[in-house]
Amino acid sequence: SPEEIKAKALDLLNKKLHRANKFGQDQADIDSLQRQINRVEKFGVDLNSKLAEELGLV
């Protein structure tokens, strides 16, 4: 269901964000992850996106 997909995506992105902060990645990478999280919260996951591929939806 779209809600489950959204939850999985947010979980994955939050893990990536945590790792980025923990290991001191570029601020641009961290900002990009934050924008992705905001986009998923607002609009859900686009099944044509790279994120959908990472989640194994495509």
Rank of each mutant, 00 (worst) to 15 (best):
Q27S: 08
K50T: 11
A20R: 02
Q34A: 06
L13P: 00
Q36V: 08
F43D: 06
Q36D: 06
K42Y: 05
R35I: 08
N48T: 11
D29P: 03
S49Q: 03
E41Q: 13
L10T: 01
G56Q: 06
V58N: 10
D29Y: 15
Q27F: 07
E53P: 01
A7T: 09
V40D: 00
K6L: 07
D26E: 10
E41R: 15
L17V: 03
A28W: 09
D31I: 13
F43Q: 05
N38L: 13
G24H: 09
S32A: 14
A28L: 08
E41Y: 09
I30S: 03
R39Q: 14
A20W: 12
E41V: 11
R19S: 08
P2L: 13
A9H: 02
K15H: 09
N48R: 09
N48S: 11
K6A: 04
K22M: 14
R19E: 11
E3V: 06
Q27E: 06
K6S: 04
K22R: 12
V58M: 11
G56T: 04
K42R: 13
L57A: 04
V45R: 00
S49I: 03
L57E: 03
K8E: 04
K16M: 14
E41A: 09
F43I: 04
Q34K: 14
Q27Y: 07
K22F: 12
Q25I: 12
E4C: 14
N21G: 06
G24Y: 05
P2K: 11
G56K: 05
N14C: 15
L10Q: 01
A28H: 10
L17N: 00
S49D: 05
E3L: 09
G24I: 04
E4R: 08
A20Y: 12
L51S: 01
L57N: 03
D31H: 06
K42E: 11
S49T: 06
I5E: 03
K15W: 08
S49P: 02
N14Q: 13
A52V: 04
D26M: 08
S32T: 11
V58W: 09
D29G: 08
D31R: 12
L13A: 00
S49Y: 03
Q34P: 01
R19W: 15
V45I: 11
D29T: 15
I30N: 03
D31P: 03
G44D: 02
L33E: 01
G56C: 06
E4I: 09
G24P: 07
I5G: 03
L33N: 00
V40L: 04
R19H: 12
D29I: 15
F23V: 08
K15Q: 13
R35V: 08
L47Q: 06
L47G: 05
Q34W: 09
P2Q: 12
P2H: 12
K16P: 00
A28M: 10
